[in-house]
Amino acid sequence: MKVKLLLTSWFKRYADGKDFLEVEVPKGSSVEDVLKKSGLPFDEIGFVHLDGKVKRMSEIVSDSEVLKVFTRIIGG
């Protein structure tokens, strides 16, 4: 099944400047499984949204789901 990741500006550099990545994962995969397979640096991911709600890393994703990925909040 395919899951689409919408990327915030920081992550676009890992997708050749595109706004999204499509990740092919087996049925029953979790949000964490999708993110790890995406090639995004997992330690830089802050949280993931689906329809305006935060998704836990352990939640199972559905085919054609669209997740928005945000970076950790950093500052000085």
Results as ranks from 00 to 15, higher is better:
32 E>G: 04
24 E>W: 04
40 L>M: 11
13 R>K: 15
37 K>M: 11
14 Y>V: 07
64 S>W: 08
66 V>C: 05
44 E>D: 13
47 F>R: 07
66 V>E: 13
76 G>S: 07
58 S>N: 13
68 K>H: 02
73 I>A: 02
63 D>Y: 11
29 S>E: 09
33 D>S: 08
1 M>P: 12
12 K>E: 15
7 L>Y: 13
68 K>C: 04
20 F>W: 12
42 F>T: 02
66 V>A: 10
21 L>S: 11
45 I>N: 05
21 L>Q: 13
55 K>R: 15
74 I>H: 11
25 V>W: 03
30 S>G: 01
63 D>L: 11
28 G>P: 10
37 K>L: 14
48 V>T: 02
62 S>G: 03
34 V>F: 04
47 F>D: 06
70 F>Y: 14
13 R>P: 00
35 L>A: 08
71 T>N: 08
33 D>N: 09
15 A>W: 04
65 E>M: 09
62 S>Q: 14
44 E>M: 13
59 E>H: 03
71 T>C: 07
64 S>A: 09
16 D>V: 03
69 V>S: 01
11 F>Y: 03
24 E>I: 01
53 K>A: 04
61 V>T: 06
31 V>N: 02
34 V>E: 04
75 G>D: 05
61 V>H: 06
42 F>C: 05
44 E>W: 13
63 D>K: 15
22 E>P: 02
16 D>G: 10
74 I>W: 12
32 E>T: 00
